[in-house]
């Protein structure tokens, strides 16, 4: 596998990074390196064009309101077509928290409406109620894993996200709030386009999911070589315990 390289495009890493999003990229990088898989990351900031064919995985993290608004504008004006083309060729697109909210049609904050890139059919509304904050665990059923698995993390969002009728959530809420606090849905997944409110960050708490993403992004038929994951599994168990699962 030495000739393989995971090519990552990090979208707005200087602005959309509020919940330690770089921890997600670090997991991908190290877990590739330990297996002799190359790792290359390209940052795409405001105004930068994105090449839809040059990357295996596109990552979009969370940001503060003002930064999220700046990035939303740029996503729609500069990067939308490229991201649609990348998704059409089954590149992996992982969007977390504020990034997840930009995957759909729109994010309404009172009188303002932030546009989304429309990769999936969902809408987000900032509700008057409290922010949805806390440890969270969800059950996901992903292709190639032979059964359901648990993702654990932390959520902290004011927006409530509703999926359109044809859209499937990433998982079912075991503990925590999920997309809107009552649907029992968490996140969204359409093929390799994945959105979730789980940060914490997500991949350090769920190293198995990092491996699943690497495999999907590289289009591997066989599973990745196993690693010594004793600490990864202990951290995953700790995050599950914190969520009460």
């Amino acid at each position: 596998m030495a000739d393989r390289t995971l090519r990552v495009c990090a979208l707005y890493p200087d602005l959309m990074n509020i919940y330690a999003d770089r921890g997600n990229l670090l997991l991908l990088e190290r877990r590739c390196a330990w297996r002799g898989i190359g790792f290359a990351v390209t940052a795409a900031g405001i105004g930068d064009a994105v090449d839809p064919d040059a990357h295996d995985l596109y990552y979009l993290g969370g940001g503060q309101d003002r930064d999220q608004m700046l990035c939303a504008q740029d996503l729609v004006e500069v990067k939308r077509d490229a991201l649609h083309a990348a998704a059409a060729r089954d590149a992996v697109l992982l969007a977390v928290c504020g990034g997840y909210q930009l995957l759909g049609h729109s994010y309404a904050l009172g009188d303002e409406e932030i546009p989304g890139v429309g990769l999936v059919d969902l809408r987000t509304v900032r509700a008057d109620g409290p922010r949805l904050i806390g440890n969270v665990a969800i059950e996901v059923d992903l292709p190639g894993l032979g059964g359901p698995r648990v993702l654990a993390g932390f959520e902290n969002h004011g927006g409530r996200t509703r999926l359109g009728p044809g859209e499937r959530p990433l998982g079912r809420v075991l503990r925590g709030h999920g997309n809107d606090g009552h649907s029992g849905h968490e996140g969204v997944r359409r093929g390799n386009v994945i959105g979730t409110y789980l940060h914490g960050p997500l991949l350090p708490k769920n190293a198995w999911f990092a491996d699943w993403l690497i495999g999907r992004a590289l289009g591997l038929a066989e599973p990745l070589d196993p690693l010594d994951d004793a600490l990864e599994e202990a951290a995953h168990a700790g995050a599950r315990r914190a969520a009460g699962v």
């Binding site: 190290r30 350090p204 708490k205 010594d228 600490l231 990864e232 202990a234 951290a235 700790g238």
Partner: peptide, 21 residues
């Protein structure tokens, strides 16, 4: 959250044999 602290140090490049939980 001891194991997550240990994991952070592992991914920071500290050899695992030097990390105790």
């Amino acid at each position: 959250r001891a194991p997550e602290m240990a994991l952070r140090l592992k991914y920071a490049g500290v050899p695992v044999e030097r990390i105790a939980v």
